[in-house]
Amino acid sequence: MGLRPISGKYFGDMATYNLYFEHYGSGQSIIVTKDIFFHYFMKYSSRIMPASLFFLLCSIIYIYPLYLISKKWFKEYWYYSFLFFVCSFSFWAYGTNGIRNGIAGSIFLLGISRDKRIWQVIWIFLAINFHKSMLLPALGFLIVQFYNNPRYYIIFWLICIPLSLISGGFWENLFSNIGFDDDRLSYLTQGNINDDDFSSIGFRWDFLLYSGTAIFAGYYYIILKKYKDKIYYWLFNTYVIANAFWILIIRANFSNRFAYLSWFMIALIIAYPMLKAELFDRQHIKLSNMLILYFLFTFIMNVFLLN
């Protein structure tokens, strides 16, 4: 992933990042006011390394936290969690295209995995300044510190589906006009200017089904299996809040970019309880089968349907 060719044709935003890198490498100043940490990281990297090494470094920063998280929470079973991350539907796209977002998501999860609150705050703050969109899961994480009952969050998620179905473009227009200073919100109302099926507009039942797998997993573990774990509740409820926002604006152009604000947590939502507690007979066999199915969804979506 890190040593891939520098290409905008095959790797989307990679060409734009390369233009920024060349701009900073020529000695120019920072030209943006948002996602500022990423741009300073890019600027200082451009002084000491070529672009090819910079993208390798980005891949390391994207992937290494996933390893650290897996080791921290699951000890000798870390490789299950890490494989779930790698097999995720969005893993490749956000390591090669939405690079800032991918790095920010990994840093955000690293923050949640820290034991001390001060380190949680520092890492999440860093994630937000790598990609401002991390404000949404950060807000969700803040909310669940005060109310952490998964049952009502699941009900809220279910209510958002008919709200989105019957409201047309109401929610897209609402969120794009409430004053956030972020040009990503223009995706909510602009047309699909690129020939990009993955970014097509409309109510995405396929994406909703994918999102629903994590909701069902959380429901099954928490409600039916009576699994109790404060950290898992944090992860699951944060996911539900972020995903519910995406459901409301699901018709937006490039809605996958908003969906990723919850999707980067799906691997943990599915795997976490089975790596922390004995919930089934022959549990490792069941977990391995789940991993195969999880990969098959990614394979079918990326190789057959999207291409």
Rank of each mutant, 00 (worst) to 15 (best):
M1K: 04
M1R: 03
G8T: 06
Y10I: 08
F11S: 06
A15H: 11
A15W: 07
A15R: 11
T16Y: 10
Y17A: 00
N18I: 11
Y20N: 06
E22V: 03
G25T: 04
K34H: 14
I36Q: 02
I36H: 01
F37Y: 11
H39V: 02
M42T: 01
K43P: 02
K43F: 14
S45Y: 06
M49F: 01
M49E: 03
P50Y: 00
A51D: 06
F54M: 00
F54Y: 12
I60S: 05
L66V: 08
K72G: 11
E76L: 12
E76T: 14
F82N: 01
L83Q: 02
F85P: 14
F85V: 07
F85E: 06
C87S: 13
S90C: 08
W92T: 09
Y94V: 11
G95H: 09
G95V: 07
N97C: 11
G98Q: 00
I99E: 00
I99Q: 00
R100V: 04
L109I: 11
D115H: 12
I122W: 01
I124R: 01
I124D: 02
F125G: 10
S133L: 15
M134V: 04
L136F: 11
P137Q: 00
L142E: 06
I143Q: 11
V144L: 03
F146Q: 08
F146V: 13
N148P: 04
N148E: 07
Y152R: 15
Y153F: 10
I154A: 07
I161C: 05
P162T: 10
P162C: 05
I166K: 05
S167Y: 00
G169C: 14
E172F: 07
N173H: 10
F175H: 02
G179Q: 10
G179K: 05
F180E: 12
D182V: 03
D183A: 12
L185V: 15
S186R: 15
Q190G: 06
N192M: 14
D197L: 14
F207I: 15
F207K: 02
L208T: 04
G212S: 08
T213Y: 10
A214Q: 04
A217F: 15
I222P: 00
I223W: 11
I223K: 09
L224R: 13
K225N: 12
K226V: 07
K228W: 08
D229I: 13
K230H: 12
Y232A: 04
T238S: 06
V240D: 03
V240W: 06
V240Q: 04
I241W: 07
N243S: 13
A244C: 06
I250E: 03
A252G: 05
F258D: 02
F258A: 02
Y260E: 11
L261Q: 12
L261R: 10
S262H: 05
W263N: 11
I266Q: 06
A267M: 03
L268C: 05
L268P: 06
I270G: 05
A271N: 08
A271K: 01
M274K: 08
L275F: 05
L275G: 03
K276Y: 01
L279K: 08
D281H: 14
R282L: 07
Q283T: 04
H284F: 15
L287T: 08
S288C: 09
N289A: 12
N289G: 13
M290F: 05
L291C: 01
M301K: 15
F304W: 08
F304Q: 10
L305P: 12
L306K: 05
L306T: 09
L306H: 09
N307S: 07
N307R: 09
